[in-house]
């Protein structure tokens, strides 16, 4: 077990390092260095950057140095000082802008993941056990539909329906009164009132996918010899189902976090743009459009790190649940 955990940890760190390189590359991608665009922007606003300030910035980001030095300056700033660089669009440190948004993304993704599981698990089990029943057909069809409807389209359609027929605005995560308010119980309540629609939109895709996974896994297990053994020992069907095949099918189901979470984070970005949710999505988009690369790169880094760590957690959970992994 310990060896497994260590191996996973090492692997996670390697992945995180690779992710950070990719994020850094994205920062570097736009043509020209950002100082040019920065001073251009500054000039646009009617100021001129004096050469002292320019040199200071050059020094800070190591712009005269080869890329790996720049990378090191950037990543060490993040690791040791929590300094993600400067957002030129907002004239603020990235870290000031990012954490709130990122926290909301984590919250939204986490809740959606849990909802996805709670919904997908029983339906998947039912679908597998009552294969080819009418409900199985309905669920299967809805599953296909859920996979075919882009989440932003679903969000748009729901927003339209709510505003047209119920006169409700369903964008954002807070009512206007609470947007800038301090955190309080009332604000949390308000958040909960707003959260269910984005969660519904985001959970659709993952739920559809997970139902199919659970159904397929369980069907695989239902006809395995150990189920026959249990039956041959007089276990009742229900008892047997939950004790053995469902339990075994649960393991690959848990490891689906590895790909559900990245998809979820991806979907959350587009949906958040549509529904104007105060998560990473809209800010990342505007940062990319304005080529505010430190802000954009930091989001890409953190969102990727979120999924990598999510995957690590699911792997560890799996090891805890499945002796075969644990002892491998």
């Amino acid at each position: 077990m310990l060896r497994y955990v260590l191996r996973r940890l090492v692997y996670t760190f390697a992945t995180l390092a690779a992710v950070s390189v990719v994020a850094f590359l994205v920062i570097q991608l736009p043509p020209g260095d950002f100082l040019t665009s920065f001073s251009a922007k500054f000039a646009e606003q009617g100021g001129a950057l004096d050469s002292d300030a320019l040199t200071a910035l050059k020094l800070r980001y190591g712009l005269d140095q080869p890329w790996y030095v720049q990378y090191w300056l950037w990543i060490s700033g993040i690791l040791f000082r929590g300094d993600f660089g400067e957002s030129f669009e907002w004239n603020k440190p990235v870290s000031e802008l990012m954490w709130d948004r990122f926290g909301m993304t984590v919250l939204l993704s986490g809740i959606t993941l849990i909802v996805t599981w709670i919904v997908a698990l029983p339906i998947g089990i039912y679908s597998a056990v009552r294969r080819y029943s009418w409900l199985d057909y309905v669920v299967t069809f809805l599953g296909f539909l859920g996979l075919a409807v882009p989440s932003f389209l679903l969000a748009l359609a729901l927003m339209y329906v709510f505003s047209r027929y119920f006169g409700m605005s369903v964008s954002g995560l807070f009512s206007p009164a609470y947007v800038n308010a301090e955190w309080s119980l009332a604000k949390v309540g308000d958040l909960a009132m707003h959260l269910w629609l984005p969660v519904f939109v985001l959970a659709t895709h993952g739920t559809a996918a997970l139902i199919r996974v659970m159904r397929a896994n369980l069907i695989d297990e239902l006809y395995k010899p150990y189920v026959q053994t249990a039956r041959a020992n007089g276990l009742g069907e229900m008892e047997l189902l939950f004790k053995y095949p469902v339990r075994v099918a649960l393991n690959p189901f848990i490891s689906t976090i590895g790909w559900v979470l990245p998809n979820l984070v991806s979907g959350a970005i587009v949906t958040s743009v549509v529904m104007s949710l105060p998560t990473a999505g809209p800010l990342l988009l505007s940062a990319l459009l304005a080529q505010d690369m430190y802000l954009a790169g930091s989001f890409i880094l953190m969102l990727s790190a979120l999924t990598v760590i999510g995957t690590l957690i699911s792997d560890l959970l799996l090891a805890w649940l499945d002796p075969r992994v644990r002892y491998a």
């Binding site: 994205v26 991608l29 736009p30 043509p31 590895g258 970005i269 790169g297 969102l303 990727s304």
Partner: peptide
Amino acid sequence: IDFLKSIPTIPLWMGLAAAVP
């Protein structure tokens, strides 16, 4: 493959696509 699958695609695509002049 493991690496590419573990990062969320949309942000990465966004980052790359934004660099297209």
